[in-house]
């Protein structure tokens, strides 16, 4: 029998294990396979992505679904690394760029979902919102045509490829993408994007 988490004797605070079991329980209840919050690097992206593919393969997930989930994960994580407004830059033996954000992968109603979140600057909200709204309204064929059109375009130096990355994410999604912004202060917003596959 499983003893429910979060049940300290009356009036007593949670013990260390109870506290963190309850914390993990919240993630488990939401069907989360893993969730990373903090400073992301390309090394973490590689390790998480590799583990994700191994887990899905062990669960006998079909190859096309593994590819779609992995692709959305990579594009989302690389968007955080490139565009998060919370960054630490410096030199630690070599040049290092760490970007803060969150990547969460789980299952619900028989589908995988991937959520990425990071803070973004007020000035960058309108353009990102517009790009996502355009993609949200498109059907599968329109997204595919839009992807091909952007593939032929010369690289946009400033965006470092944001548009094509977002189109790739929308293309792999089984349902229209969901996104939201929550204001943090005068200059920053919390941005999140959810994709179901």
């Amino acid at each position: 029998m499983t003893i429910p988490a979060n049940t300290p004797p009356e009036g007593e605070p949670l013990t260390l294990a109870q506290h963190y079991r309850a914390f993990k329980g919240v993630l488990d209840e939401r069907g989360i396979l893993f969730s990373f919050s903090g400073y992301l690097s390309e090394g973490i992206l590689y390790s998480l992505g590799d583990t994700l593919r191994q887990k899905m393969t062990l669960d006998d997930t079909d190859l096309t679904t593994i590819k779609k989930v992995f692709s959305v994960f990579v594009e989302q994580a690389q968007n955080i690394i490139r565009y998060s407004a919370e960054k630490v830059l410096g030199t630690v033996g070599k040049s290092v760029e760490l970007s803060s954000g969150m990547v969460t992968i789980g299952t619900e109603r028989g589908r995988f979902f991937i959520v990425c979140a990071n803070t973004i600057l007020e000035d960058d909200v309108p353009q990102l919102k517009h790009r996502l709204e355009v993609l949200q309204k498109m059907d599968k064929d329109e997204i595919k045509a839009y992807y091909k059109e952007q593939l032929r375009e010369a690289p946009d130096e400033k965006s470092r490829g944001a548009t094509i990355g977002l189109i790739e994410i929308a293309r792999r999604a089984s349902e229209p993408i969901e996104f939201d912004f929550d204001r943090i202060d005068a200059e920053k917003h919390f941005f999140c994007l959810k994709v179901s596959i």
Partner: peptide, 16 residues
């Protein structure tokens, strides 16, 4: 086996 969107763009340039 797999490539991301910025690599896809680079591949497209090679094909062109």
């Amino acid at each position: 086996i797999y490539f991301n969107s910025s690599s896809a763009k680079a591949l497209m340039n090679m094909f062109q």
